[in-house]
Structure formats: C-alpha cells, structure tokens
Simulated scan of single mutants.
Amino acid sequence: MSTPLIEDLSALGQDFVDNPHPVYAQLRARGPVHRARSAASGEFWLVVGYEEARAALTDTRLSNDIRHSSGWKDDGGNSIGLNMVQTDPPQHTRLRKLVAKDFTARRIEALRPRVQQITDELLDAMIPSGRADLVDAFALPLPLAVICELLGVPATDRKTFHDWYLASTDFSEPAAAMAAAQAMTGYLAQLLDAKRREPGDDLLSALAGSVNDADEETDRLSTEEMLGMAFLLLVAGYETAANLLSSGTLALLRHPEQLAALRADWSLLDNAVEEMLRYEGPVETTAFRYTKEPVEIGGMTIPQGESVAVVLAAASRDPQRFAEPDRFDIHRDARGHMAFGHGIHHCLGAPLARMQAVIAFRTLLERCPGLALDTDPAVLTWRPSMMLRGLHQLPVTW
C-alpha cells in the first residue's frame, strides 16, 4: 500500500487559520482521511468526512488517553491535571458522572435570570460608547462571568486566569506557554484548597469536597483529577461560548438578509444558533485520539499508536450531509452538526452554551438595532489554534 501524502498545514500560514474551510473542502473531495503535519503537533491524521467523523468518535479503538500514543513519554504528570477529555471509560464515566448533575436542563434553566442580568449589565456598559470590540466587551466577559459564578471563581481573578489561558495555548512561545500552564495549576490548587477549608455553594467547593468526603471510594477525585476537572470546566465553560457569540454575530452581520429574517421572526432564533454552530462552530478539531490498534477509517488504515484529529468544522460542512454547506442559512435544518462533538465525549456544557447564546443574541440585537461591522471583514484574524476557533477581535458599531 502506498504511503499517503502528508499535508503540511503550517505551510498554509495565516490564510488557513483565518479560513480553513476551503482547505478542508479540497481534502474532503479527495477522501475523508488524510495524513497531516503542523508545527505545534508534528504528524497526525485528519478525519474530515461527516460519517467517518461520527464513526471515529464512537470507535473504542480510538483512545483519548495519550499513553496509547507511540510517542508518549512519562513526564511525571500533567501540567494542568487529568480531565475527562484525556480519559476513557471507566475513568471517564466516573469523572463525568461527578459533574453531570450540575449541567442538567433544570440546573441550566435556573441560571437563565442571572445570565440575562449579566447580559444586560454588559450592554449597559457597552452601548453608550457607540462602538466596541464585541469580543472584549461582550462575547468573552458574558460566559466567563457565568462559568466563574457557577464554579465559584472570585471576580477579581477572572481576567488574570483568562490571560494565563491565552498564554498557555500560544505554542509559538513554548516557555511562556509552560509558565502560564504552571501558574494556572498553582492558582487552581490554591483555590481548591481554600474551597475545601471554607466551602461555598458552588461547583469547585463540591469538587474539593469530593477528594475526601465521598461516600464511595470510586466517587473520590485524586488531586490531579480535581485540578484537571477544574481547568476543563473553566476553560471549556467560557472559551467555546465566547467563540460562538463572536463568530455567530459575524455570520449575521455578513449575511444581512439572514439578520433581517431573524429580527422579523424571533421564533427562528433557536435554529439560527444551531446554524451558527454548524457554519462556524467554536471547536475546529477534537483533542487527539490515539489508535490502540490498527484502525481503518474511510478506507485508510491508520497504524497503532498514531494521533487522530477529528475535524468537526469539516464534518459540519460535508456536502454529503448538508446541502450547500458553505451557505449560511438560519432556515436550514442544521440538526446533526458536529459542533459539540459526538459520542461519550459530547460537550457536557452544550445546553448552557445554547441558553447563553439565545439570551445574548436576542438582547444584543434588540438593544443595538443598528449593529454593524466597524472594520473590513477581510482584516479580521482568528486565533492560531486548530482546536478552538475564535476571533481575536470583532469591532462593531451601532
């Protein structure tokens, strides 16, 4: 069997970062699975077809545990703990069960009044200026405030934690990224220790208490698991939602006929959010899976120990699943998109993200009837990450 060509994604530069969809479409036209390379991750496999992506995300031969990677070396631990994204059943099942009760539909619905209040307060502060960077003024601080209140992170620490997170994901500066990850770990360890001594009515207090106070041995979190869970819930709880709010707003502003249709009929809002998720979802690719044995996907045999990235953004624009996938249409049936993943690792916070989006978009569009881009969309840039897809800035006026 011939060796597949290696697609050098890093060589594509900022154009690929800003708009990866044409590249994924070209790859998908040639086949659903490809060998790729990037400066940050080395060589790995890309899954870009819809059906193949769904199959890969439920294939137990693909592990989330990096110890199944042929290149794994034990470095003595994880810099930001051990979380659900990095584990398989039964460990994953146990970890997810511990927090799932805090993300039920009833618990999320109970947050609605507070989400509306935070939304209104942010717009109260933003609107008088007449123009703003929507990412900095609204899209980021809204979900950051919501998840930090849910978890019990002090308001004074939120900006610092976000700065650490951004630095930790900037792989162009490896030393600074490692230092930021270590700073986050130290902060979370201290915060969880404080929650253990003086617990409050928040999720981090519950996690801190589960280290020693669980009724069953299997319900106890190790220190590493507790740190990893805290980090995952914080980051996944706001960064993806912020990306949805900013990229969704951009999609509406670049498609004025769709925006007009939404303003004329708010019953379209729930479906509009689903189309935003399909069209420009906040997660571009999954975390790596690792082949525990040779696995055939889309006619390509991937050897044991290889890294596999499922491209959710490409799957959600597969023309075999969605007609005219590059067309933004809030009337289309967008159900089945891959923005929140699939299988046992499907995003736990999806209901919270959807609820925040519905409140944020309606309130923003009602209170800013003249909302418009305040820059040439061609100069907008996106964060240099193949995993999370989000804008650096979104200048708007109203």
Rank of each mutant, 00 (worst) to 15 (best):
G248M: 07
D163V: 08
L57H: 08
A208R: 06
S79F: 01
L348K: 10
A177R: 05
L95V: 13
Y24A: 05
V273F: 04
T104N: 09
R289Q: 04
S307H: 05
H331I: 01
A56Y: 00
S129E: 13
A55I: 03
S267D: 14
P377C: 06
A29P: 00
L232R: 10
A53S: 15
R114D: 05
L188T: 14
G336W: 02
I6T: 15
A179Q: 13
P4A: 12
P174H: 08
A29K: 06
L394I: 13
R220Y: 04
E239P: 06
T156V: 15
D75T: 14
W45E: 05
T60M: 09
M338E: 05
R389C: 03
S307Q: 11
S205C: 08
I330C: 07
P32I: 09
T87D: 04
T249D: 06
L259G: 11
L62F: 00
D8F: 02
N78W: 04
P199G: 12
P303H: 01
D201W: 03
L12H: 03
F361N: 10
E324M: 02
R94Y: 05
N83L: 08
D65N: 15
I297Q: 01
A334P: 01
G152C: 06
R327L: 04
M184K: 11
W266V: 13
I66E: 15
W266Q: 12
A40F: 03
A105E: 13
Q182D: 10
S385E: 03
D376K: 05
I80D: 03
N83R: 09
V308K: 00
R317P: 03
T285L: 02
A177I: 08
